Computed example of a mutant assay.
Amino acid sequence: MKKPLALFAAPILGVLAMLALPMSAEAHRAWLAPTSTVLSGTEAWVGFDAGMSNGVFIADHAAMNLSGLVITAPDGSTVAPENLHRARYRSSFDAHLTRPGTYRVANVMGGVIVSYKQGGETKRWRGAEADMAASIPADATEVVATSSASRIETFVTLGAPSLTALTPTGEGIELVPVSHPNDLVAGEAATFKLVRDGQPAASLEVTIARGGARYRDNPEEITVTTGVDGAFTVTWPEPGMYWMNASVRGEASGDRMAYSAQYNGVVEVLP
Rank of each mutant, 00 (worst) to 15 (best):
T35V: 00
I58V: 14
A252G: 06
S53T: 01
T167Y: 05
R256P: 00
L175N: 05
A50Y: 04
A17K: 14
A62V: 02
I208A: 06
E43Y: 07
S67K: 04
V176Y: 11
Y116W: 05
G170W: 13
V248E: 15
Y263E: 09
T102P: 07
A140T: 13
M257W: 14
Q118I: 08
M1I: 14
P177R: 04
M64Y: 08
A30V: 12
G68H: 03
G211C: 08
I152S: 04
W125F: 13
G170L: 15
M132L: 15
L32V: 03
R249Q: 12
G14M: 13
V38G: 00
A25L: 13
S148I: 11
A80M: 12
L204P: 06
V195M: 06
N264F: 02
E188A: 14
L84V: 13
R86Y: 00
I208S: 06
A130H: 10
P200W: 05
A10C: 03
G230I: 07
I136Q: 13
E129D: 10
G68S: 07
A213I: 07
M241W: 04
A73G: 09
R88T: 15
L13C: 09
Y242E: 07
Y242G: 01
G51W: 03
R196H: 10
S77V: 06
A138E: 08
A44G: 11
S77F: 09
R210V: 11
E220K: 11
Y263L: 15
Q118W: 05
V234T: 11
D75Y: 06
A261R: 06
V38Y: 04
H28T: 04
V70G: 00
R124K: 11
I113H: 14
I58W: 03
A186E: 07
G227C: 07
A10P: 00
E268D: 09
V56S: 04
Y242H: 07
A202T: 09
Y259F: 14
Y259A: 11
T122E: 12
T167S: 10
F93D: 12
N65I: 01
I71N: 03
S40M: 04
K3N: 02
I113F: 13
M109G: 12
F232E: 04
T146F: 01
R99V: 06
W236Q: 09
L163D: 11
E221P: 00
T102D: 05
S253K: 12
V156P: 02
S40T: 05
A258N: 05
V114L: 10
T154Y: 03
E153I: 02
V195G: 03
V206A: 03
I222V: 10
G47R: 14
G230V: 02
